[in-house]
């Protein structure tokens, strides 16, 4: 049997699962509840503050990770969902589309963060 490339995808998936589990819910609370209902006032969300923070390279790296890993997590799971509902026959195509979109998302995110000003 051929050597599998699955470890790459699986480790990205697993990293994404961890990142998503740890970081995403709290971010959703902030952008979905705290911000719109101004529970902590307007002050934390003024442009200068957020923008200033995002220029910091470590913060940007963090943002990159929080966005990119869950994309691969999604790609991995969505691929198997499609197989599960009966698309086994076109699994190679599905893999290309799913992982391809995660890679595309990664490139876009990288460009945006790289050229962040």
């Amino acid at each position: 049997m051929s050597k599998s490339s699955e470890p790459i995808w699986w480790s990205l998936f697993a990293a994404g699962g961890v990142v998503a589990a740890l970081f995403i819910p709290v971010l959703m609370i902030i952008t979905g509840i705290i911000l719109p209902f101004t529970l902590t006032g307007e002050e934390p969300f003024v442009f200068e503050r957020i923008h200033g923070a995002a220029t910091h390279p470590i913060i940007r790296l963090l943002i990159f990770c929080i966005i990119v890993f869950p994309l691969f997590h999604f790609a991995h799971r969505f691929r198997s969902i499609l197989v599960d509902i009966g698309l086994l026959k076109i699994r190679p195509v599905i893999s290309v589309v799913c992982y391809g979109s995660a890679i595309f998302g990664t490139i876009v995110t990288a460009i945006i963060l790289w050229s962040f000003s």
């Binding site: 869950p70 994309l71 991995h76 998302g105």
Partner: peptide, 15 residues
């Protein structure tokens, strides 16, 4: 498994 769709959608929003 489907939770991944929502998580990914949120990540797209973050982008």
């Amino acid at each position: 498994e489907f939770t991944a769709v929502f998580v990914a959608a949120y990540c797209v929003f973050l982008i």
